[in-house]
Design a protein around this nucleic acid. Structure first.
Lengths: 168, 168
DNA sequence: GAACAATACTTTGAACTCAAACTAAATGGA
DNA sequence: TCCATTTAGTTTGAGTTCAAAGTATTGTTC
């Protein structure tokens, strides 16, 4: 992406336009939604840049970490989709790729032949460890916000997720 | 997307895993980044659902609104990309689609033959108005957060955007 | 003013997400 | 038991984004 710094905040500008158009009730919501979109774009670019050398996208990394933290190192594909809020078709796609790269393998469920398990391999655990070191260092520890603002942000977003029905 | 409510906050869970693994310094950042990813997914789904009936994606809607608020109703494609932080190839794609639907048309720049202008059409202005009414009502005014938390969230994200170099 | 560099946009290809249709297996009544 | 329904996962196709390469035009430098 070509990087360009503007001499003003484009979202503040948009909010003014909303106010002037008589949409004051929606202006703050518009600004928030647009901010989340842009923040997502910024953070995803950082994470992908950090994980790229390991041939991992954020989605594949999340699956790998979920498996590595799971009790037995294996989970049904459906469970993975629920936990990470990804579409079943995307789970299939992600597991395909992880399996192709040898980081995960598919196993039949012992008692239910409809479900298949994804199991992390030793090579998958190794990749998860190295990738985490990279992304911790490059992104997660590089938050330029102080501890308190960061916590506030997290809580605000948690409220949003909660009221969207992600968890009880 | 299949909707599923978990009996716990999966991101809080992930943060505990990070702490237990000895990655305390990165835990809060991980939680924040993951929260932004999920919030984006939630909000984008709402916006897309609201704009769908008008055959608009959020990206196309943003371009349409930027043009409708511009002084002359026309802007160079490059400017659009800078303002909305979208890749030049994506701008081409978005304008292709808007032009195909008659909401925008391409005009040559009067003095620089390299640049092409996107100009909003009367039909584009009409679509922008109707789409805004829908998305204001369905999404932007439906923020379940109070005014102050919303403002705090916005400011936190603005800090993030600022330090990412979006504006000065 | 000719050559080189920069700018603006488009094209092409890879990667990803989601929705819808599909197959297979399990479940729950009548 | 039989049949309809639900559940699990996959396949396919449309829609996006980004990177890289390509084309055309403009600007700059010697």
């Amino acid at each position: 992406m070509p990087r360009r710094t503007l001499p003003f905040d484009p979202i503040v500008e948009a909010r003014k336009n909303w106010e002037n158009a008589g949409w004051s009730d929606a202006a703050a919501g518009m600004a928030l939604v647009t901010s989340v979109m842009r923040a997502h774009q910024i953070l995803l670019a950082r994470v992908d840049a950090s994980l790229g050398p390991f041939n991992l996208s954020f989605a594949r990394y999340e699956v790998l970490m979920l498996l590595s933290f799971s009790r037995t190192g294996r989970l049904p594909l459906g469970k993975i989709g629920q936990r990470l809020q990804v579409h079943p078709a995307s789970v299939t796609n992600v597991i395909d790729r992880l399996e192709r790269d040898g980081l995960v393998r598919r196993l039949p469920h012992p008692s239910d032949q409809r479900t298949t398990l994804a199991a992390i391999t030793p090579s998958g655990r190794k990749a998860a460890k190295l990738a985490t070191e990279a992304v911790n260092r490059d992104v997660f520890e590089q938050t330029e916000l102080g501890e308190k603002p960061l916590q506030q942000l997290f809580e605000g977003l948690a409220n949003l997720r909660h009221s969207a029905g992600d968890f009880t």
